[in-house]
Design a protein around this nucleic acid. Structure first.
Lengths: 345, 345
DNA sequence: ACATTTAGTGCATGCGCATTCAATATTCAT
DNA sequence: ATGAATATTGAATGCGCATGCACTAAATGT
């Protein structure tokens, strides 16, 4: 039998003060004497009173200032993916550390982002983070109008009047090509994301650019969807033919691991003896001893700290202009690329 | 420059009706004529009006009925763990599918759960889900008083006046012992969670019980913290001595994979030739070809659907009594336990 | 045709809090 | 000690919406 919860009036009555006093007791920096505050806090504690964040949000909706809810909306796809899991975990900690709450919305396709953001905006979020997806011009403008800063993570916000934090995908692609070329590979395959996927496309472009500089081009191109299985299937297709690649670059570690497991344990191939493999992201499992995947590392911690800090700044000073930030990846050499000088298979 | 957002009054004026009419237009089942509703919806659409969920929540706080916010609080630890990532992903979809939003709170230790729940309650969540942790009696009672149903996932709510959904850990432990005994193992090690961890303890108890029935006991006991590295380190310790185990049961797949990688790739051991390995959970990567980990599967999908459905019911009918539900795990036989009849190492 | 129900609408109110304003208490400077 | 500046306090108000209530228009019954 749910009972009405305790309000500031109840506390005020019990403490023999006005409701205003109670409100002030719970507002850091408010004009109230120390003894009064302590007394109220004591009484409130005994009664188990907690200020109602919803009501607080209501009453801060004044003039033309956007009402503050203390919540940050986060929109994410494929949360089960290790890369996003890690990302969300970091975001959650970062957001909480700054005193905000995280309203999480999962979408299955990029097309749902606008709707999701709309829903979250009904909850008067103070800011939004969109992972690996982009919003429409229109939606970005709507957020702008409402004074809600938007942070795109893992995508560029160019031309959108939003902030963004991402890895330099183009340069990352170049790095991958670099090490594969250096190892002397000639039949280099690429496993990317779905047609039109911005991240994959950038990685591919950088990869091809570097290849071209060496007078080469992608030997074969397979399309996946960033899942392990899609990597596995790509491998099955790649090695089913007579003319096999001697190296594979995957647009993500998860897909690379799919290739790795399929190759070693289903096709009986050796890595790097039979072909070299390079991933992207450096998720935790890429470093597991049995994988030892050579990959391009994203400085996730730093990127997320930067994203959170920037978003918080924008939430606190709505006038701040958006900022687009690109981080450099780093090649992590492990054991899936053959050493220079080894003989070609 | 943030502008005041559009309110129902603005729409009312534009549509030539009262604010009440606008409110009714957006409330399914409210008393309003079809033409009026359609006209209002049209005008509202043109103006970009969206009802303010915060204000809506405020005004539904009536009488002694708890105010509804449309938000479900979710408290989680170790979101980066594949098991939890998958769990949260499912919960998120389930909660959204039923029209609720998810307010996510990450904690680092079980001790923070009470505080976290308290914070979430300030946001007037309509219900709470706590993953792999337990709340204090006191907190449970507080939720009860406020009419907030609590769902414990991966923990039993026995004696707590809360609902819970979990796997039968005891029986799961027995299953693991079963297959290991059947394979003829005699020096069986256990890698569990930290001292006092309820889940690990239950799995261990069931495991030992079955072992005892066969006149055996745990050969060696190692303690981990459910991370890959802790599994790896446990393996290093287990196989550093002369008297090595011939089988290892880990309280989680992640730790089992730590053991597997360390054994195969750092210690040069073969699985299952040198020792058998059994995990728990059946996370996606357990099934990867190169792992092929024999494990106890949790019917995650079903469990989460059950948890969400039950919580939603409780949120909609506050009088409903809590319900404790235990699911049965299933042994998934893959390739990390030696076949019966093979010779002992 | 008239009484009675029903549907549709607007007005007024309150949810719990922060905040402005005016009133009072306290402190400080001289 | 005494006026001025400052610190505390309470009363009153509004945030945006849902809803009880009163009232009118339409629909139904006899």
């Amino acid at each position: 039998m749910p009972r009405k919860s305790i309000t500031s009036y109840d506390v005020a009555k019990a403490a023999g003060v006005s409701q205003s006093a109670v409100s002030r007791a719970f507002s850091p920096g408010a004009s109230i004497s120390k003894p009064t505050r302590e007394h109220i806090l004591k009484v409130a504690g005994e009664m188990g009173y907690q200020p109602n964040a919803i009501a607080r949000s209501m009453s801060t909706a004044r003039k033309d200032i956007h009402q503050k809810s203390g919540m940050v909306g986060v929109i994410v796809t494929r949360l089960e993916d290790p890369f996003f899991a890690q990302t969300i975990a970091e975001f959650s900690r970062g957001i909480q550390a700054q005193g905000w709450q995280m309203l999480l919305f999962t979408v299955d396709t990029e097309a749902e982002v606008d709707t999701a953001l709309n829903t979250l905006m009904q909850y008067k979020i103070d800011g939004a983070i969109v992972l690996s997806a982009i919003l429409s011009d229109q939606m970005a403008r709507a957020c702008n109008t409402q004074g809600i800063p938007v942070m795109l993570y893992n995508r560029s916000a160019e031309g959108l009047n939003a902030s963004s934090v991402e890895i330099d995908n183009h340069e990352g692609g170049r790095m991958a090509a670099d090490i594969l070329l250096e190892a002397g590979h000639t039949r280099i395959a690429f496993v990317g994301g779905e047609e039109g996927d911005a991240t994959s496309t950038r990685r591919q472009t950088g990869f091809e650019e570097r290849l071209a500089e060496a007078g080469r081009q992608i030997f074969r191109h397979e399309t996946g969807d960033y899942t392990f299985d899609s990597g596995r299937e790509a491998a099955l297709r790649l090695f089913a033919r007579k003319d096999r690649p001697d190296a594979v670059f995957c647009a993500s570690d998860v897909m690379a691991l799919g290739v790795l497991h399929a190759a070693r344990n289903e096709l009986g191939l050796r890595i790097p003896e039979d072909f070299s493999l390079v991933g992207f992201d450096d998720i935790p499992s890429a470093g597991w001893a049995g994988h030892a995947l050579t990959t391009i590392r994203q400085p996730v911690r730093r990127m997320i700290k930067d994203a959170v800090d920037n978003l918080v700044e924008s939430m606190e000073s709505p006038a701040l202009p958006p900022r687009i930030r690109r981080f450099e990846g780093r090649l992590i050499i492990r054991n899936t690329v053959r050493q220079v000088g080894s003989s070609s298979p």
